[in-house]
Amino acid sequence: MAHDTAHHESNTKRIWNVFWLLSAITIVEVILGIIKPAFLVETTVISMKLLNWIFIILTIWKAYYITWAFMHMEGETAGLRRSVVWTGIFLVCYLIFILLTEGDYIYEVFKSGHKSWDF
């Protein structure tokens, strides 16, 4: 990294830039959440609404900026960065995959089973 030990130059400008970026992303999310454009709701990508994919991607983008700029992950060594970020991402993806698959399976059982759940 360019400035690991001598990171004493002020980066207030970058901090404010990141703040404006995060605010802009949040505003876009809220606007999309309120108007819910029909074509984004109707289009389905990998069994989820396109709108939801957009929300998730924007969220990860925000998370990237918070971690890299605010938590200064960009200034840490590659070893620390990888051991924290990759571990987290791997385990979270695994957990999400397992649980959502199982949840969808149970939904199918409820829907196609012989018992009625609506009474």
Binding site: L80, G88, L95, I96, L100, G103, D104, Y107
Partner: peptide, 30 residues
Amino acid sequence: MMMWFFILSDALTFSGFLAAYGFSRFKFIN
């Protein structure tokens, strides 16, 4: 460094909760 690893473990706790939320939501998706 220990703060970073604490954060990692705490992040996994929150992921557990949010993934469980996702599970229940997929279970009652309609």
